[in-house]
C-alpha cells in the first residue's frame, strides 16, 4: 500500500540552514547536508530545501548545495525558492535534485508550468501554493504570504494541475506558525478535486495534527519545519505514533 509521506523542510540561505536547529548529534547546525543526512537516517520520506537567498550568486550556490545533498542522501528531495525559468530547473535537476518547486513565478507566468512539465516531465514539477482566507474565500498569496493575488485558491490549484504540475505543496498562511494544526478543510477540498498528490503544510504542532491531515485533510504528504528542527516531534516517534493509529506509513 502506498504510504503517507512525512517531509521535513529546511530553509537555506547562502548555502546554510537558517532556522535554528536543536540536534545534539549535529556538529555544524548550519550544514544542510549533515542535517539532511540525519533526517534521512531517522526515516524522513522526502526532504524539501527552500532557498531564501537573495543575492546574485544565488543560482550557483544553490546548485552546488544540491550536488552535495544528492551525493550524500538516498531519499528524494525537492528544491524551491526563487525558481522561475526552464533554465533554472535544468541546472538544479542536472545537479541532482529530484523535483523543483515553483511558486510566485507560476502565478506571474502560468505558462511556465506547461513549459517545465513538457521539458522535464510532470513528476519533477511541484507547484507551491500559499493560501489565505480573505472574508471566507481562499486566495492565493505570494511573497511569503504577504502579497494577495486575485487568484482563488481552488481554481488556481485546478489550473496548475491541468497545466502539468506533478504535485501541489499547499501552505495555509492562516495556519503557518500557529502550531494549531493543518488547514484540513481546504487541503481535503483540493486533494479530492485533483488527481495529483497534495502535500499539506503550515500548522503542525502535535502528532495528532498529522493523523488529522491524512484522514480529514486527505493529504498525501505532510510537511513541517520547526517542530522537526527543534526536536519537539522527532520523526521516528511521529511515524510510530501514526503506525499505531493505522495510518499507512513507511517504517
Amino acid at each position: 500500500m502506498l504510504t503517507k509521506r512525512i517531509i521535513p523542510c529546511l530553509d537555506i540561505k547562502d548555502g546554510r540552514t537558517v532556522k535554528g536547529v536543536n540536534f545534539v548529534q549535529l556538529r555544524d547546525a548550519g550544514d544542510p547536508v549533515e542535517l539532511a543526512k540525519i533526517y534521512s537516517d531517522e526515516g524522513a520520506d522526502e526532504l524539501v530545501f527552500l532557498d531564501i537567498t537573495a543575492t546574485v550568486d544565488k543560482r550557483k550556490t544553490l546548485a552546488e548545495l544540491v550536488t552535495k545533498v544528492a551525493k550524500a542522501i538516498n531519499i528524494p528531495f525537492t528544491v524551491g525558492g526563487g525558481i522561475s525559468t526552464v533554465e533554472d530547473v535544468k541546472v538544479l535537476l542536472g545537479a541532482g535534485a529530484d523535483k523543483i518547486s515553483i511558486n510566485s513565478a507560476a502565478v506571474k507566468n502560468p505558462g511556465v508550468i506547461d513549459e517545465m512539465a513538457a521539458e522535464f516531465g510532470s513528476q519533477c514539477i511541484v507547484v507551491a501554493i500559499d493560501t489565505r482566507d480573505v472574508d471566507g474565500t481562499d486566495y492565493v498569496h505570494t511573497h511569503g504570504g504577504r502579497k494577495p493575488t486575485l487568484l482563488q485558491t481552488q481554481s488556481w490549484a485546478k489550473e496548475v494541475a491541468d497545466r502539468g504540475a506533478g504535485e501541489i505543496l499547499l501552505t495555509s498562511m492562516d495556519h503557518d506558525g500557529t502550531k494549531a494544526g493543518f488547514a484540513n478543510e481546504i487541503t481535503a477540498e483540493i486533494s479530492s478535486m485533483l488527481t495529483i498528490p497534495v502535500i499539506a503544510s503550515g500548522g503542525a504542532g502535535k502528532m495528532h495534527h498529522f493523523e488529522e491531515v491524512f484522514s480529514f485533510g486527505k493529504a498525501d504528504a505532510a510537511l513541517a519545519a520547526s517542530i522537526f528542527h527543534f526536536k519537539e516531534i522527532p520523526v521516528p516517534e511521529l511515524k510510530s505514533y501514526l503506525v499505531d493509529r493505522g495510518v499507512s506509513i513507511r517504517f
Binding site: M1, L2, T3, K4, R5, D45, S122, Q123, G166, E167, S191, S192, L194, T195, I196, P197, K218, D220, A221, R250
Partner: peptide, 17 residues
C-alpha cells in the same frame, strides 16, 4: 486507471512495500 481518483492518484508517487 484509478477506479476512484480520490483514493488513487496517478502517478503513484511515494513509498510502497
Amino acid at each position: 486507471i484509478p477506479e476512484n481518483s480520490q483514493e488513487f492518484k496517478v502517478p503513484q508517487i511515494g513509498w510502497n512495500e
